[in-house]
């Protein structure tokens, strides 16, 4: 007891100097991360806005202030609106289908069994592979001349075209490959949400004579709203940044029909070396994703309130 008392007095006395030492330690602990974030995120973000008003050459000399010219150019640029349209097309098709399929699969394999955990293991494999490799495999499989899937579809009576070179079919193909890859990823997140729902709700519903569909509509959906809104926002943000499969499978073609915003930024900056204007598009992308995800989140949380 006296020892304890002594310790308390001791720590109280020493508190100020000890507190200072701790404070210094705390700063030291965050110093590396804060330095790196400052140099490689905060400053580039600010520069991005600054760049969007300039024009400069490949060697980053001859900076010319453009006033609002870059933004005026943006609003008159058919390429930008084409890329914006393609990105919206990609997002609007991907998000509902992706979430719906992933949710259905998650419900189907929710119960614990060896077969379900086998399915889970398999469905998740695409999620751990690089989009590059997956895009390559799929572009071979649907190749009109050697592709297995293309051949099977032909056997089923479809008239096959060169999907990735068709202005109509290139984008849907790219979308399907994206959905195929991300199925396991969204399934895992939704599965975590599903497992968080207490079984007793379902039991009570069965007692009241609810069928499978009613259980889904009246319990699963409302209880899943927080997870769902998170997943939807996540999927929207991801879709707006789509690049990899487009870069590998189509390079934005045919006829720029699959050129997305990020791909446009990339080709403007690193193929045409128009860094200033690329930053203008990047700022636009930032603004668009920000607004869209805030709106979606607001909408989905309101929905959540309505249901509750």
């Amino acid at each position: 007891m006296p020892l304890l008392l002594y310790r308390r007095v001791y720590t109280m006395k020493k508190k100020s100097s000890l507190g200072k030492a701790r404070e210094r330690a705390g700063l030291l602990f965050v110093l590396p991360s804060m330095t790196i974030l400052t140099i490689f995120v905060f400053i580039p973000l600010i520069i991005s806005f600054v760049f969007s008003f300039f024009k400069f050459d490949m060697m980053f000399n001859n900076f010319e202030f453009q006033k609002l010219d870059n933004y005026i150019r943006l609003f008159q640029d058919g390429k930008f609106f084409n890329a914006l349209w393609n990105t919206v097309y990609y997002t609007v098709c991907t998000v509902p289908v992706q979430i719906m399929i992933s949710l259905i699969v998650a419900i189907l394999i929710k119960k614990q069994s060896w077969f379900n955990s086998f399915c889970k293991t398999v469905f998740f494999i695409p999620a751990i592979c690089s989009m590059t490799v997956i895009s390559i495999i799929w572009s071979f499989l649907i190749n009109k001349d050697i592709g297995m899937f293309s051949y099977w579809l032909e056997l089923l009576g479809f008239e096959m075209v060169d999907l990735l070179n068709s202005p109509v079919w290139a984008m849907p193909t790219v979308i399907l490959v994206g959905i195929w890859k991300n199925l396991g990823f969204y399934m895992v997140i939704l599965l975590a949400g599903l497992n968080g729902i207490d079984e007793s709700y379902y039991e009570a519903a069965v007692m009241d004579g609810a069928g499978a569909f009613q259980k889904f509509r009246k319990i699963t959906i409302p209880m899943m709203m927080p997870t769902l809104s998170f997943t939807v926002v996540n999927c929207i943000i991801g879709s707006f940044q789509v690049f990899d499969q487009v870069y590998v499978m189509t390079k934005g073609g045919p006829l720029f029909k699959t050129q997305t915003l990020v791909q446009l930024i990339y080709s403007t900056a690193f193929e045409s070396f128009d860094m200033g204007y690329a930053s203008t598009i990047a700022v636009a992308l930032f603004a668009i994703t920000f607004v869209v995800s805030v709106l979606t989140f607001k909408h989905m949380t309101r929905e959540e309130d309505n249901i509750a």
Binding site: A25, L27, L37, I47, S48, F51, Q241, F243, S279, L285
Partner: peptide, 30 residues
């Protein structure tokens, strides 16, 4: 650990989660 400026720094860190890499890739390259 409590230290000066902790909250504002953490807020900044969280803020970077909102910034997609694609938005800063040009200046980062420069």
């Amino acid at each position: 650990i409590d230290f000066k400026g902790k909250n504002i720094m953490f807020l900044l860190v969280m803020g970077t989660l909102m910034v997609p890499f694609q938005v800063i890739m040009v200046p980062l390259f420069v």
